[in-house]
Write a protein that binds this DNA or RNA. Structure first.
Lengths: 212, 212
DNA sequence: CAGACTAGTGGCACTCAGTGCCGAAAAAGA
DNA sequence: TCTTTTTCGGCACTGAGTGCCACTAGTCTG
């Protein structure tokens, strides 16, 4: 077989000049320096040493650049969910997956933070993010539907998708607002609110006058 | 005082040629006929008999046209919430407000349905909607924070905002998928899932193998 | 090695959304 | 009539995104 020798250039045709990751990184750099709106696609392309036309072959829009390879992240999450114990409750499994999905090596945390700061604050990116979140919700509701034995478009999987997304984003917003908080802890407390906070009489935190 | 005589033209300067409502309606008409992407802003402007430049004074973007006067809707909801009995639980009050917010006179239902069909299916509109939803969530979390006596940016009001939005949109998605369903009923069942479905051991619907 | 084949590149021209500028139009008031 | 106020809309410009197409840099075959 000796494929190793060809691993550098295993296929025909011209080699790509760059990668999605490199472009995403270069773009993020510029967005942080000058701001998202102040950076044109031309700026990014020339910073990365490629043509503007080429950039649009790597990413369908300027808005997609900060997301990098989100599809791969989703695949990771899907795999994690598929591997959970089938006797685990759907909510437990999803809670574990959400935590896992958002765990990053410590050295990447500051980078991730700046990225999420852009995604959750720049209006154009906030808007565009919805499309990515829809794919994320799809992973969640596909899993829920499978485990519950109902159709994906039934109301339970749909609500579950929305509600887990909501809890995750609430935790992210909280994380970005504070300086030294731990994302995982915030996710856990948001998920606790989901599981216990909305049942009447279970938690005083959502009763009038209540406190945490 | 006799302001009545001037009610037709109570202020100085040239009279507006049209209204936000009329433009929103004209645009929606075209979007339904040819599709959102296939309709240019020029098309809408000339259909409404105004200049393109003028249209952008009524609406900040093409994406805003289908929303009409959403700010007024939000004000209605805020007023409803403010008028709720202070002894009512936050979740009860919000559930009632969500139902009220989405009640429409029967003759407007088909129109509302087509409008929501666009908003929830055209990618550009789906993305843009996020910004409107953020304002909606703000109304919810402002109310929750006030009643709970916590800061608006605490985690509980944030999660509550997200989760009620999620439940509402799940109901909408369900409504649009089926032909003869009742939006209010769907909202109610989504809210039931919120309140009872996520507490362990309370509902079999989110346990493995469970059904509805 | 020449030519065929394949895949990535990027220039050019175009469409369309959105904006700044500014003069014209339409109303009210003195 | 002249001034003030407000809306209108043309013009020109920026910037994202797309279709087209020739070019480049590789591999493969004879």
């Amino acid at each position: 077989m000796q494929m190793n020798e060809r691993s550098v250039a295993p296929r025909m045709g011209r080699q790509p000049l760059t990668t999605r990751a490199a472009l995403s990184h270069a773009a993020l750099q510029l967005f942080l320096e000058r701001g998202f709106e102040q950076t044109t696609v031309d700026d990014i392309a020339s910073a990365a040493g490629i043509g503007r036309r080429t950039l649009f072959r790597y990413f369908p829009s300027k808005n997609d650049l900060p997301w990098g390879d989100f599809e791969a992240e989703l695949a990771r999450m899907r795999a994690f969910l598929a591997a959970t114990d089938a006797t685990m409750s759907v909510v437990d499994a999803l809670a574990a997956a959400v935590i896992e999905f958002n765990r990053f090596p410590p050295e990447e945390v500051p980078y991730h933070r700046e990225r999420m700061n852009l995604l959750l604050n720049v209006p154009a990116l906030v808007a565009h993010s919805t499309l990515r979140y829809a794919e994320w919700r799809r992973v969640v509701s596909d899993f829920a539907a499978g485990r519950l034995g109902v159709a994906v478009d039934a109301i339970e999987p749909t609500v579950i998708g929305w509600v887990f997304l909501g809890a995750s984003l609430a935790a992210y917003e909280q994380w970005l607002r504070t300086n030294d908080s731990d994302l995982i802890e915030l996710l856990e407390s948001a998920l606790v609110l989901l599981r216990e906070g909305f049942a009447p009489g279970r938690s005083p935190s959502v009763e009038p006058g209540g406190r945490t």
